[in-house]
Design a binder for these strands. Structure first.
Length: 488
RNA sequence: GGCGUUGUGGCCGAGUGGCUAGGCUGGGCUCUGCAAAAGCUCCUACAGCGGUUCGAAUCCGCUCAACGCCUCCA
């Protein structure tokens, strides 16, 4: 089962059979958030894709070390020698680490709400300044970086003499040079393509550390190289991130790693695609975004109502992680109904009766689920198969198909594994054990009263009970084998 | 301007050189006191124009459109 998993590798632009560097183990690094503001739903999508991937590896029995960093040292902006975190800090009269703390907590709370598994290690850039300085020194020693006025730059042209800068993003440095815009304040660089490894801190700059080249702060590409190497080794299996990080960020990571260790750092590069809103990429800077909190409350001009975390997750899992997904209220409403249908079927499982023969091929169905996931984590196909199971369950419940207890066990085991362990969905209706049991007994009481009324053909009372319960979010359904209810 | 991706039925979204995606919506039927649910069923698409092929929506070319990266960005 684990042998035929194939992964689309952005480095080769092909699907490749996944073979871990060390049998049975997976090392995975994913670029985490810059904690200078609230994450928006687009950010969440990428992390969710890799959460699903992490979950599937675990499900297959791999020992996974999943590293996802927190960028708390800030990134350079193009027009000032200071970074986002420091800029915001001054505006709000807060310590940089106060901003970091605030938005790190926010990030964690959001992910927890969406039922994310925590990564194995969540290192911070500020916690690895020493390692970054060491790496810079190594690159300088290897002749691939130079020092100017207290800053250190990576010498892209020099690197490109022996290596290919652009191997991931499929660019040629020569083309890049021709098309580079002339930017102000880059006179320190030998070449516009060069990127900062260490940046001198201006006097007003708040985040600053001592280094052999003076007081400053690390360049934004370096932390990922240093932290991935430290926790996963000089070469590791999977590096993930959003499509928009491919260039320059990931390209620079490759160059830095090669410059340090003379070895390609990553075997499989994976890139999740963007979540768009109104056909455009979500971005903090343009205001074209939805915050996760707004999804829950519905407090956004693009939303007619709030949606649960699990519905949102289901919506995202209905698209392949490498496809652009467009967010819309209409799509969310559709996802909500589909999600409900899936959960209703799962709730029906305990009520199924078994037979001495099966009229459905559970083994075949199960294999199809694995085939879908093994084909580059194709969750939309998996979900299509899950709806086949929904149909099975409903038909068995209606007495139109039959299943043995062995097959039922397999069905339950498989569907639970995929719905809850791999896709990470929640079944809200069965969340709180005791409360649910008590609610169930009370609702069943009403159902009995209503059945008595129906037996007397007292439709007025019967309908009143149904309508009043519906008004409280409890919906009755009259099936062949009695009345059941669902919560909304 | 350079590099790249995409264009699928009312909507969202998979996939494929010839064979059902799936979800949502709408129509019909079964069931039902009614409704809901469930089941069955119908509406059967692949931007446009050429080319390759026995056969293309799937491969190639061009056109149009959209998006992403080239600057911080999931």
């Amino acid at each position: 089962m684990t042998q035929n998993l194939s992964i689309y590798n952005s480095l080769t632009n092909t699907k490749e059979l996944f073979k871990p560097l060390k049998e049975g183990y997976v090392g995975m690094y994913v670029c985490g958030p810059t904690v200078y503001s609230k994450v928006h739903l687009g950010n969440v999508r990428t992390f969710m894709s890799f959460d699903m991937i992490y979950r599937y590896f675990l499900h297959l029995g791999y020992k996974v070390r999943y590293v996802r960093n927190i960028t708390d040292a800030g990134h350079l902006t193009d027009d000032a020698a200071e970074d986002k975190i420091s800029t915001k800090a001054r505006l709000e009269q807060l310590e940089p680490m106060e901003i970091v703390q605030k938005y790190t907590v926010d990030f964690h709370q959001i992910l927890e709400r969406f039922n994310f598994l925590p990564p194995s290690i969540e290192p911070t850039a500020t916690g690895h300044i020493l390692e970054q300085i060491e790496a810079i020194q190594t690159i300088i020693n290897n002749g691939l970086a130079y020092v100017v006025n207290g800053s250190v730059y990576f010498d892209v042209l020099k690197y490109n003499e022996k290596e290919h800068y652009g191997i991931l993003s499929k660019r040629n440095i020569e083309d890049a040079i021709e098309n580079t815009r002339v930017l102000d304040g880059q006179s320190d660089k030998k070449n516009p393509q060069d990127f900062a490894l260490w940046k001198r801190a201006e006097p007003e700059h708040i985040q600053r550390w001592k280094s052999p080249w003076g007081i400053g702060f690390p360049g934004w590409h370096l932390e990922c190289t240093v932290m991935s190497t430290k926790y996963l080794g000089e070469a590791f299996d999977i590096h993930g991130g959003g499509m928009d990080l491919k260039f320059p960020h990931h390209e620079c990571e490759i160059a830095q790693a090669v410059a340090c260790h003379n070895t390609a750092p990553v075997k499989y590069w994976m890139h999740g695609n963007m979540l768009t809103l109104n056909g455009k990429k979500m971005a903090k800077s343009t205001g074209n975004n939805i915050l996760p909190g707004e999804i829950f409350t519905g407090d956004n001009k693009n939303l007619s109502k709030g949606f649960s975390a699990s519905v949102t997750r289901f919506f995202m899992m209905q698209a392949h992680y490498r496809s652009v997904l467009d967010f819309s209220n209409e799509a969310l409403l559709a996802a909500e109904k589909g999600h409900q249908r899936l959960m209703d079927a799962l709730n029906l499982i305990p009520k199924l009766s078994t037979s001495n023969k099966s009229t459905i091929e559970v083994n075949l169905w199960r294999d199809k689920c694995y085939q879908a996931m093994n084909d580059d984590f194709n969750t939309p196909i998996l979900i299509a198969h899950l709806f086949d199971a929904v149909k099975f369950i409903n038909l068995i419940h209606d007495g139109k198909e039959y299943i043995t207890s062995e097959d039922l066990d397999l069905l339950i085991k498989t569907i639970n594994a995929f719905v809850f362990d791999v896709l990470g969905l929640n079944n809200n209706a069965e969340n709180s054990g005791q409360a649910t049991t008590q609610l169930e007994s009370v609702v069943n009481m009403f159902i009995e009263m209503r059945n008595a009324a129906r037996a007397d053909k007292d439709w007025a009372l019967s309908d009143k009970i149904r309508d009043d319960l519906a008004a409280k979010g409890i919906y009755l359904k009259d099936g062949k084998e009695g009345t059941t209810f669902s919560l909304k």
